[in-house]
Computed example of a mutant assay.
Amino acid sequence: MPRLALSNVEVVYDKVFLAIKGVSLEVGEGDMVALLGANGAGKSTTLKTISGLLGPERGAVTRGEVSFGEADLLPLGAPDRVASGLVHVLEGRRIFGHLTPDENLVAAFRAGGSAARLNELRERVYAYFPRLKERMRSKAGYLSGGEQQMLAIGRALMTEPKLIMLDEPSLGLSPLLVQEIFAIIREINSQEGVSVLLVEQNASAALEIVHSAYLIENGHIVMNGTAEVLKQNPDVQEFYLGGTGKVNYHEVKHYRRRKRWLA
């Protein structure tokens, strides 16, 4: 049984706009899966569907099923989904800037947990992100973009997740920082057995660390397979991995209309 499964899910905003249309995907236990696509394709909406954050944006699931293990997620609120072992690192980091990194980590720890467990988890986060320990008494709002992304991931680990969802962790970061953070994500997956669902526009970086991927366009899943299969697909290379040479844009427009993703 997959750890996370979406089956034919549709989401509507304001009872009018159909944002995702029949999306189905799976994330297995200990798996690393990427959800790739351009801006507005439905990537973030898919994550918010899973984590229960559609309501504040006037979105609703109108069709389909979302399960996590044996549990049906749709009747559960966001806090209950976190308690079940699912955590969502939002785009833009969303750390508490007025608190220190250490206070951010403490704030994410479950209510009623023991001090010993809190310290154990906190030291584990600092082992993955030594830079955060160096800056643990600074205001988090003064950290660099890369350090804030590290803190956002570390804070998620304080919830003891079984599956962590990352929304555009590379956003605004230098290539070297992206490489560093993605290497740590892969290490967390390997060492902790935490499943990862990674949403990324940087398809090239994402496909280097995940096991498999889904490609979403205009709210539809148009392709899925192993990372190697997607990297070798000519359409993916041309439209998501930078292409291989000069492009005739008139031909590209014509070709877009006749893509055969599943061929």
Score class of each variant (00 low, 15 high):
residue 1 M to P: 07
residue 2 P to F: 03
residue 4 L to V: 08
residue 4 L to K: 02
residue 9 V to P: 04
residue 9 V to E: 10
residue 10 E to C: 11
residue 10 E to D: 14
residue 10 E to F: 07
residue 12 V to T: 12
residue 13 Y to P: 04
residue 15 K to F: 13
residue 21 K to W: 07
residue 21 K to T: 11
residue 22 G to Q: 04
residue 24 S to E: 05
residue 24 S to P: 06
residue 25 L to H: 00
residue 34 A to E: 04
residue 37 G to R: 03
residue 37 G to M: 06
residue 39 N to D: 05
residue 41 A to E: 06
residue 43 K to A: 06
residue 47 L to V: 12
residue 49 T to K: 06
residue 51 S to L: 09
residue 54 L to P: 00
residue 63 R to S: 11
residue 63 R to V: 06
residue 68 F to C: 01
residue 69 G to V: 11
residue 71 A to V: 13
residue 74 L to A: 03
residue 75 P to Y: 00
residue 79 P to V: 03
residue 80 D to N: 13
residue 83 A to N: 13
residue 83 A to W: 10
residue 85 G to V: 09
residue 88 H to C: 10
residue 88 H to E: 11
residue 89 V to C: 02
residue 90 L to I: 10
residue 90 L to P: 02
residue 95 I to C: 09
residue 97 G to M: 04
residue 97 G to R: 13
residue 98 H to F: 09
residue 98 H to E: 15
residue 101 P to H: 12
residue 103 E to I: 03
residue 103 E to H: 01
residue 105 L to S: 05
residue 112 G to A: 08
residue 119 N to M: 05
residue 119 N to K: 15
residue 121 L to F: 05
residue 123 E to T: 02
residue 123 E to A: 04
residue 124 R to K: 10
residue 126 Y to T: 02
residue 128 Y to V: 04
residue 134 E to S: 00
residue 135 R to S: 01
residue 135 R to D: 05
residue 137 R to G: 04
residue 137 R to L: 11
residue 138 S to C: 06
residue 140 A to D: 02
residue 142 Y to K: 14
residue 143 L to A: 05
residue 145 G to K: 09
residue 145 G to N: 12
residue 146 G to V: 07
residue 146 G to H: 06
residue 149 Q to E: 03
residue 150 M to A: 11
residue 151 L to I: 07
residue 151 L to A: 10
residue 153 I to F: 00
residue 161 P to F: 02
residue 165 M to D: 02
residue 166 L to F: 13
residue 168 E to I: 08
residue 170 S to A: 15
residue 170 S to K: 12
residue 172 G to E: 07
residue 174 S to T: 08
residue 175 P to H: 07
residue 179 Q to G: 03
residue 179 Q to R: 14
residue 182 F to G: 01
residue 183 A to G: 03
residue 184 I to L: 10
residue 185 I to K: 00
residue 187 E to L: 03
residue 191 Q to T: 14
residue 193 G to M: 11
residue 200 E to D: 08
residue 201 Q to R: 02
residue 204 S to E: 10
residue 206 A to G: 11
residue 207 L to C: 05
residue 209 I to G: 10
residue 211 H to G: 15
residue 211 H to Q: 15
residue 211 H to C: 08
residue 217 E to Q: 05
residue 218 N to C: 12
residue 223 M to K: 15
residue 225 G to T: 07
residue 228 E to F: 13
residue 228 E to S: 15
residue 229 V to N: 13
residue 231 K to F: 00
residue 234 P to A: 11
residue 234 P to N: 08
residue 237 Q to L: 08
residue 237 Q to M: 07
residue 238 E to G: 05
residue 239 F to M: 13
residue 241 L to D: 13
residue 241 L to V: 13
residue 246 K to S: 15
residue 246 K to T: 11
residue 248 N to V: 07
residue 249 Y to I: 09
residue 254 H to C: 12
residue 256 R to I: 14
residue 258 R to N: 14
residue 259 K to A: 04
residue 261 W to F: 15
residue 262 L to C: 02
